[in-house]
Design a protein around this nucleic acid. Sequence first.
DNA 1: AGGACACTAACGGCGCGTCAGAGTCA
DNA 2: ATGACTCTGACGCGCCGTTAGTGTCC
Lengths: 293, 293
Amino acid sequence: MWINQVCTECQLTKKAVEYYEKQGLISPEVGGNGYREYGEKEISTLQEIAVLRKLGVGISDIRTILASTNKAAALGKLEYLMELSIQKASAQQACLRRLAESYDIAAAREYISAGIDELFTIKEKLVHAFPGTYGMYLSIHFGPFLNERIDSSDKEEAYSRIVDYLDHVGNLNLPRELGEFLENCFAEMHKTDMEKMNSAMQSALDNVDEYIADNKGILEEYIQVRTSDEYKETPAYKMQQLLLAFQRSSGYYDIFLPNLKILSKSYCEYMKKLAMANEVFMERYPQTKGLIT
Amino acid sequence: MWINQVCTECQLTKKAVEYYEKQGLISPEVGGNGYREYGEKEISTLQEIAVLRKLGVGISDIRTILASTNKAAALGKLEYLMELSIQKASAQQACLRRLAESYDIAAAREYISAGIDELFTIKEKLVHAFPGTYGMYLSIHFGPFLNERIDSSDKEEAYSRIVDYLDHVGNLNLPRELGEFLENCFAEMHKTDMEKMNSAMQSALDNVDEYIADNKGILEEYIQVRTSDEYKETPAYKMQQLLLAFQRSSGYYDIFLPNLKILSKSYCEYMKKLAMANEVFMERYPQTKGLIT
DNA sequence: AGGACACTAACGGCGCGTCAGAGTCA
DNA sequence: ATGACTCTGACGCGCCGTTAGTGTCC
């Protein structure tokens, strides 16, 4: 099949197809006359590309998806990023509306610096900084704390430190096995699952005693597994140690979390609650010492 | 003031400021040493630019806004366009989610061709095709009819004819006085007003008799004005005639509306209702013959 | 033989970021 | 004299669109 027919079948332009070839997404055979012959394989790839492009997926992400065995995870990540950009656009739209009503540039500056850009930036960078969907998990986890204003120079500094940290982490190449593990670990988990997890965690923290009472059986079982010697032989345990070590060395505990506490009052309160809950927990189950971070 | 200070005051980078100068948005004085001296005027312009850029407004639109005496209209238009793009992004996101759940390219193609691209294209092109906020008015007016699928070759043809028409109209230079009139005419009207107008129109069409009964006084007054000889002397009347002539010559009635009828069943029904309402109206007020189009 | 099709190659466009190199201020 | 600043200029990015010129199929 030659290019013109390919274009009609895949709803693409010649230039687009040509570009995808240059990007190495397809590699049709070239005949003696220089004409390209597109086979079924190319067609289906191109159809896939066409769909993804129309959904706003960029070439490099498409490359990832085409090569990926776990497309759901990659797509989930992209969907989450899209949601972030939609939220940002909505905030921008709201600001535009206010400007249309009364053209007050100073007020708009206030409104914008109140967080249109910066807080979304952190959420986005979180997604990219860590491999697989782990970054997305963190973004969803910390997202609820990232809705406050940056209204002091302290917070501005904290913000730029966090951004630097995230860029730094994104450029690190963490141990290969850890990377692969993280890519698989959150693979089946979807955005909504992550959100549910978080709200469940929140409500558990709000009434620790009740939570412990309600889930006594499960908890004790879990603790037994986690404190058992067999668990320390599992890959999961090793990976967890690897992850911990990585985060420690990258500055997760020394840079990221402390600055997040400066940036977000609500996160600060969350941490207090968490610490209290931890105390209650340790009192009840002293054997879990050192288990929870 | 030199550039570095400008950058901190306006939250812009040097390159950005430089670029805006190259685009002719500012023109600071250049001293003997080649250094630029930024005055208050430049600063306030740059702050304005910075705000607008952070709201996603492009340079050419910023140029328009900076020069415009009626910023509200321009901003309203941009806000509407942004809303369209948000709606589109939401549709894309929904499709991404479905793909993440089950990676079915064929189904996604269906879903996309069902209207993610095309119908939004029409709405957008409508905004751009006509000057001022008149295009936006038309987009809001016809928008509700543009939510159906393009599921036949007839509709595809109608779609491309409409697109061609809108591109064609956008390239026409219509009479200067008409352009100016349209720019001012819808100036104070906001998006929400336009939407209200439309729904009011809809409900009026759904029960014509009631509407006529309820608004008897207003209607008769309106008719008297519109049929009076004095009205024909007003600029409004002349403009209306100009607009009519323009639309007739551009193919609004010969190309746009007929193809819209093919594209949208709901518009077809709307037109039928409108025709019926018109008949009722003419029966009641025969003197309005030829008034309503 | 002519028109529809294929190929390659170069440039454009948005909104700047990112060097590189040379000059200027305090 | 040093370091922080300024200038100009070229190239890059993502995703192709748009000519333009040349060769190939039917």
